[in-house]
Amino acid sequence: MSAIPTTPPVDPVEAGSDPRRGATVDPSANQRARHRRVLGVAGRYVLLILVLFISVGPFLWQISTSLKGPEENIFAFPPTLIPESPTLNNYLAVMDSLPLGTYLLNSAYVSIGAVIGNCLFGAMAGYALARMRFRGREGLFAMMIATLVIPFEVIMISVFLVTRDLGLINTLTGALLPVALTVLSIFIMRQAFVSLHPEIEEAARVDGAGEWQLFWKVAMPSARGSLAVVAIFSFMAAWDDFLWPLIVLRDASKFTLTVGLVFLDGQFSADQRLIAAGTIIAIIPVLALFIALQKQFFRGVGQAAVKG
């Protein structure tokens, strides 16, 4: 994990071990550049695969476990990755024993609500904190940041009492509101807007744009990458949240997926295959969102805006 270079590196070892390299007599500058590029690409793939090995373990283990048949020992050491008799029965069994559809819908409601709240309100607040001057700005920001460190468990009972007083116990709205906006999102959006180039803003302002238009038409599009980050993080936070929904939600029909899935890990039965299948089902939407949103990072918004 020590050196993950940034470089299309000219790795001496690689260069020496490449037979084609030796064959090239008196390479022109052009060819050299091409070789370097090929080597760079190869080097990058080597690194990518290296990191892949470091990262992939748990995911692989879970997929493999979720596909194993009942006769295989899940905990055998050394672990076996290829199931002897692969089966999808575990997935069917999970769907059979739990109302996954309901759980997924509930989780989707809370998570999508959290994404909207965090992206919209987080951006608005971040924009005000980054681009507007007003009395108390620094204090407000410091207060937000410092509360990031308070462990939720410490304030949990107090939050629960507030939720009760608002009549939101056993409602999905009650599960949503405490995660509908997090300081983390405000922080990320503020950082994004801080590095926004003032010239763009000024140009738009000269064109007579109002404050809201500036925010919505100029600032938001140029912070698309950060919005994607906030969307992923807030979706994940809401999707994975366990303790709070557990405390607020009472009826099984209101459970989110994370709460529902722990029922697979019971005192009478704890089949790791089913637990793994449930986990994979829970992870897929998060990864799908990640795949969809990571493209936003590579739109090259920043440079277009700066050039303008």
């Binding site: 990191v51 892949l52 990262s55 748990p58 995911f59 986990t279 992870i283 990864l287 990640f290 795949i291």
Partner: peptide, 10 residues
Amino acid sequence: VVFFSPVVAS
């Protein structure tokens, strides 16, 4: 996606 996957691993 694979690099990101440990984040969502239990």
